[in-house]
Lab assay of single mutants.
Amino acid sequence: MASQGTKRSYEQMETDGERQNATEIRASVGKMIDGIGRFYIQMCTELKLSDYEGRLIQNSLTIERMVLSAFDERRNKYLEEHPSAGKDPKKTGGPIYKRVDRKWMRELVLYDKEEIRRIWRQANNGDDATAGLTHMMIWHSNLNDTTYQRTRALVRTGMDPRMCSLMQGSTLPRRSGAAGAAVKGVGTMVMELIRMIKRGINDRNFWRGENGRKTRSAYERMCNILKGKFQTAAQRAMMDQVRESRNPGNAEIEDLIFLARSALILRGSVAHKSCLPACVYGPAVASGYDFEKEGYSLVGIDPFKLLQNSQVYSLIRPNENPAHKSQLVWMACNSAAFEDLRVLSFIRGTKVSPRGKLSTRGVQIASNENMDAMESSTLELRSRYWAIRTRSGGNTNQQRASAGQISVQPAFSVQRNLPFDKPTIMAAFTGNTEGRTSDMRAEIIRMMEGAKPEEMSFQGRGVFELSDERAANPIVPSFDMSNEGSYFFGDNAEEYDN
């Protein structure tokens, strides 16, 4: 993207840094990872977990959730003011799984939030270390993106479920800051804005008074975040219109849905970061690795190297396929839920299948599930090659597409044709070009129609051997075009429920 120079890199967003050079960025990201790792080690000690239990991804998720809940100030305040039966607002906890007599047992633990905050700050040299908290939120978000298709949420806001490739980060909490905003897809931002506008339509006082002023500035800020994701002048001009509207209503909703559809071809720039579970960072720190000293990046080879040398386990339900569970977590670790499966298959070195073909449910185990038949197995999170994460949407291309997802959002900077089903997408653009945004709409449609099938995206960008740390010898991959490109292809993934 041309304006790259004016933006802070995501590592800076990730670490609240002012302008830093590459070495400083690597050190501050490393410091953040160190903090998460030290916190995780301490929690495993508190909970008396064995090494194996500490490497269980379900335990990692519970521990991450506990610290996120302990620092969720708004919710904590709300819980104190609106006490609900049987919930102690000062405590947080969740299921911890232990191996007892050759069987997995679930144990519900409860801790004072104050105590968890103390352990977290102690692991982070006394700081609140917001960057580390956001990092864990993005890992949870990436896992949700890989596990669930947001059909219901899309339909509720009037969008087409086939636009799911635009929904990265749709389950990120509001408090995820600049680093969170960077990884949100165009569809996620559109959905947040539509929800806001709908509230304004239904509630006369939404934009009024002292609160209304705050609401208005939040609305304009979200519009600017979305505008910054678009790469064409016409899309940005249309966002200006939406932002400046005196009284946002149905016309703005129409414009936003139009823009979301246009992003299936004229893709937005959305950041991709490899955020790993805390149970990967903990053992690495415990083994003596100093992330701050060595430096770390979320968008280069580092996460690949770390996963190459990590042992992570997962509980497996009786009829689940461990290899499929591994694929789910591998995609989440690489922030690749909406990437082209052919690119992923090449990088991973084994075939990556669409969601609907995987015999696996989510990673988390519900409290009512029976533990008797639970097994555990090693997650295979290694890769054959590594590639640089991208934040450009890439230019655009036609490809055989599917009944489910009709476009992709690249996660890796790797040369390819970008699949999208042009006739299906263009069919949504018939007729409606009147109104105050008509010239911009016409211009956007013209650009979409001009998108050429034979153009290559990320020209000359390749993948790298894991021994090639400096990215000196790019390998331009070859793809098996007979395979499906979309992950949520004609899909039956479970729906995400809060």
Rank of each mutant, 00 (worst) to 15 (best):
T437H: 07
I36A: 13
S486K: 02
K325R: 09
N321V: 14
L328W: 03
A27R: 15
E294A: 13
N370C: 10
E107K: 07
G288E: 08
T437L: 01
K48C: 07
R348T: 12
G187F: 02
R221I: 09
L358E: 06
G94L: 04
I316N: 12
R461P: 05
G268D: 01
F206L: 11
R74F: 08
A366T: 09
E494F: 00
L172H: 05
K113L: 05
Q327W: 03
K184F: 04
P283V: 12
Q12S: 15
M66N: 08
L56T: 15
W207M: 02
R342S: 13
L110M: 05
E320F: 08
Y148M: 09
H272Q: 14
D145E: 12
R361L: 13
W386P: 02
R150E: 09
D480V: 13
I138S: 06
Y40W: 12
A27C: 01
S217Q: 14
G485N: 02
M13L: 04
I444Y: 04
K357I: 10
I63H: 04
Q4L: 14
G435I: 06
K90M: 13
D497K: 02
S60I: 13
T130P: 12
E192D: 12
M13N: 05
I63C: 14
G228K: 11
G17N: 14
A411E: 06
G35L: 07
S274T: 15
R174D: 05
N309F: 03
E244V: 13
R342A: 14
D480E: 11
L344E: 05
I253L: 11
L315N: 05
I25W: 03
K305T: 08
Y219F: 11
E210L: 12
P474Y: 00
S413Q: 06
R208G: 03
N368R: 04
T6I: 07
L315T: 08
S376W: 06
A336I: 01
R243T: 07
M13T: 03
C164L: 01
F412M: 15
N321Q: 08
Y111L: 09
L79D: 10
T390C: 09
T134G: 02
L379Y: 09
L193C: 14
K7L: 00
M66C: 11
A85G: 13
H135L: 05
G435K: 05
S269N: 08
N76L: 12
T232V: 07
M13C: 08
H140Y: 11
C164W: 01
S377W: 02
V29Q: 02
P318G: 12
Q409M: 13
M371S: 08
F39T: 06
I388K: 15
L166Q: 15
I33V: 14
R102G: 14
I265P: 12
N417Q: 13
S467Q: 09
A373R: 14
R208N: 06
R199A: 07
D302L: 07
F420T: 13
N309H: 13
W386N: 03
S345P: 05
R121Y: 14
A234M: 05
T45K: 06
L466G: 01
S413I: 03
G200A: 05
G132Q: 08
R355G: 04
G295D: 13
L154T: 01
K103P: 00
V29K: 00
L306Q: 15
A323R: 13
W104M: 09
A129S: 14
M222F: 15
G35E: 07
W104V: 12
F206M: 11
M448R: 07
A332L: 06
T130F: 03
A366K: 03
G393E: 09
R382T: 00
C223N: 08
E73L: 15
A251E: 09
A373P: 13
L307W: 01
S359K: 15
R400Y: 03
C279I: 08
I257Y: 08
S376N: 14
A366F: 05
W207L: 07
Y97S: 06
S165E: 01
M374V: 13
S326K: 05
M222W: 07
K214W: 12
R38Y: 05
Y10A: 14
G5F: 00
V100S: 10
Q235R: 08
R19V: 03
V363T: 01
L172S: 05
N76A: 08
C44Y: 05
L79M: 13
G132S: 14
V363W: 00
T350I: 05
Q405E: 05
I316G: 02
G249D: 05
S9W: 04
Y496C: 09
T62Q: 02
R246N: 10
G450R: 03
G295K: 06
A337H: 05
L381A: 10
V270S: 12
G209M: 06
V476D: 00
N368G: 14
G288I: 10
Y40C: 05
N432R: 09
S402W: 00
V476G: 11
M163W: 08
A123G: 15
S376L: 03
L172P: 09
A387Q: 03
R461C: 04
G349D: 08
F346M: 15
K31D: 04
A237E: 04
M189S: 08
E24Y: 04
E434F: 00
L379W: 02
E494K: 15
S262M: 09
R470G: 00
A181L: 08
I25R: 13
A323K: 05
M440A: 14
R416I: 08
A286P: 03
N125H: 10
I365D: 03
E320V: 06
S217E: 02
G132A: 13
L344C: 11
S297N: 05
G86Y: 03
W120S: 06
Y487R: 02
D497Q: 00
T147L: 03
E454A: 15
G132E: 04
R8K: 00
S438D: 01
G54N: 10
K305Y: 09
G300C: 07
M239K: 06
G393I: 02
I96P: 03
L49A: 13
P423Q: 14
S28Y: 02
R348D: 03
V414L: 15
S407I: 04
Q149Y: 07
H140Q: 15
D127F: 13
N142W: 09
L358R: 04
A153D: 06
Q364F: 14
R156Y: 08
A271Y: 10
M238W: 01
V343Y: 02
K325D: 08
R102E: 01
L298I: 10
L306I: 14
Y148W: 04
T360F: 08
S28T: 02
H135R: 10
I194F: 03
H135E: 08
V476P: 09
S3M: 12
A332N: 06
G228A: 13
K351N: 10
I425Y: 02
G187D: 05
S297V: 06
A271D: 09
G394E: 12
A153K: 03
F479Y: 14
T134M: 09
C164E: 00
S383Y: 02
R436T: 05
G356F: 09
F464N: 01
F291G: 13
V155I: 14
E11I: 10
S392H: 06
I57N: 12
R175P: 02
L381K: 02
G404Q: 11
G187T: 04
I96C: 11
T424E: 09
F464E: 06
R389Q: 02
G249C: 12
N125P: 03
R199E: 07
R65C: 11
E494Y: 02
S297W: 08
N202R: 03
L79I: 14
G249L: 10
S274Q: 06
E455H: 11
T396S: 13
M105S: 08
L193S: 15
E107A: 12
L379T: 05
Y385T: 06
N321L: 07
A428H: 15
T232S: 12
E18F: 09
S3F: 14
S467I: 12
N211C: 15
R162V: 12
L358A: 06
T92L: 06
N368M: 14
G177I: 04
T360W: 01
S50L: 05
S407M: 13
R99G: 11
V329Q: 05
N397W: 12
L328Y: 02
Y496H: 06
R243W: 02
R461F: 02
S170E: 03
V270Q: 15
Q364C: 12
D203S: 05
I265R: 00
S376G: 15
E455Y: 04
N247P: 06
R74G: 04
A131P: 15
G17R: 03
P453S: 11
S314C: 15
S383K: 01
A131G: 04
Y289K: 13
E292Q: 13
A278P: 05
I444F: 10
S326Y: 11
P248F: 02
N250W: 12
S9E: 00
L264D: 02
V329M: 15
N334Q: 06
A373L: 11
H140V: 08
Q235K: 13
P161W: 00
S84M: 15
A181R: 07
Q311W: 00
V183K: 05
N144C: 13
Q122D: 00
A401P: 08
I119Y: 06
R446H: 05
Y281L: 05
Q168I: 05
A263V: 09
V329S: 03
M1K: 11
